[in-house]
Computed example of a mutant assay.
Amino acid sequence: MKCSYCQSGNCIKNGKTLNAKSRYKCNSCFKRFILNYTYNAYQSNLNQQIIILTKEGLGIRSTARVLDISATTLLKRIISIANKIPRPFISKGKVYEVDELRTYIKSKNRLVWIVYALERESWKIVSFNVGARTNKTLKAVLTTLQLSEAKSIYTDGLRNYKYLIQKKIHKVIRFGTNHIERFNLNLRIHLKRLNRRTICFSKSPVLLSAVLKIYFWSELII
């Protein structure tokens, strides 16, 4: 028998549960587990399944139905998973593209913007922020890029950028944001909550940020 958490074979019996199922204890990681859980939320591979289904575009209720767990449990797990994901390491002297993507929270009257930066060579997302289309929201992303001594930052014609990016590295040219515009399409296809015509929506900025963090950086999870 192997531990459900660390896969060690150093396990012993540790009594029974209220449902009369045998409980085991791992002498390597000291965690307790049972072999067959009644409720699927206790399965050891649940987090990985949530990551896969989230990145494949399933909404909260769809994912909850597939995994046979409650929507409330799923929401808590998504936020918990996102909190374990660190921000990626950013190399110096790279070329970036920055763009904004419009979506909404709870109601289509509550618009929010996803501002994010894509590293052109690797197509990796290095920073993002969720909020109103203001200097404060943009600055959270742009400051990260400028601290990394970015070689160039390509944006669209939004006026706010010229006040936030150094003139010598700021580029606004035709086709300059082709890569990130294509990535916008990927986001709208892969994440149901970002579709233009959908009844699937985020309940809070915290949840939207958590889903984006999983989509962008789940391979960095600790």
Rank of each mutant, 00 (worst) to 15 (best):
V66T: 15
G93Y: 01
R61C: 06
S28Y: 04
L67Q: 11
R23E: 08
L58I: 08
N47M: 01
N47Y: 06
F33M: 03
I90H: 04
K94I: 01
N27A: 07
L53S: 12
F33Q: 01
A82E: 06
N27G: 07
S28N: 09
S80F: 09
N83W: 00
F33K: 00
N27E: 06
K94T: 00
S70N: 02
R23T: 08
R77W: 08
Y96D: 00
R87L: 15
L101K: 03
S62R: 07
L74P: 11
Y39T: 13
V98M: 02
L101P: 04
I79N: 12
N40E: 01
P88I: 15
S28V: 09
K94A: 02
R32F: 11
Y42S: 07
K84G: 14
F89M: 12
I78P: 02
K25H: 09
L101Q: 08
T63V: 09
I60E: 10
A71F: 12
K94V: 00
V98L: 04
R61G: 08
Y24M: 03
K25G: 05
I50M: 02
P86H: 15
C26V: 04
I79S: 10
R77Y: 11
K84D: 15
K76S: 13
G57P: 04
S44E: 02
D68I: 07
I81Y: 02
A82L: 06
R32C: 13
A41I: 15
Y39A: 09
L75Q: 14
N83R: 05
I52R: 11
E97I: 10
V66K: 13
F89P: 01
P88W: 07
G59V: 06
Q43K: 14
V95N: 01
Y96N: 00
V95S: 02
A41D: 08
R32I: 13
R32M: 14
R102I: 14
E56D: 14
R61S: 11
E56H: 12
D99N: 02
S91P: 02
I60G: 02
S28H: 04
Y96F: 12
V66C: 13
L35Q: 05
A82Y: 05
I51E: 08
F30Q: 10
C29L: 03
L75R: 15
R65P: 03
N27I: 09
I50G: 06
I85D: 08
Q43Y: 06
L74S: 10
E100R: 06
D68R: 07
Y24F: 10
S22D: 08
N40Y: 01
I81R: 01
L101W: 01
K31F: 05
K84L: 15
A64G: 10
I34K: 10
F33D: 01
T63K: 10
L53F: 00
C29T: 00
A64C: 12
I79G: 09
R77K: 11
R32S: 14
C29E: 04
S91K: 14
A64T: 05
I51M: 07
L75T: 12
L46N: 00
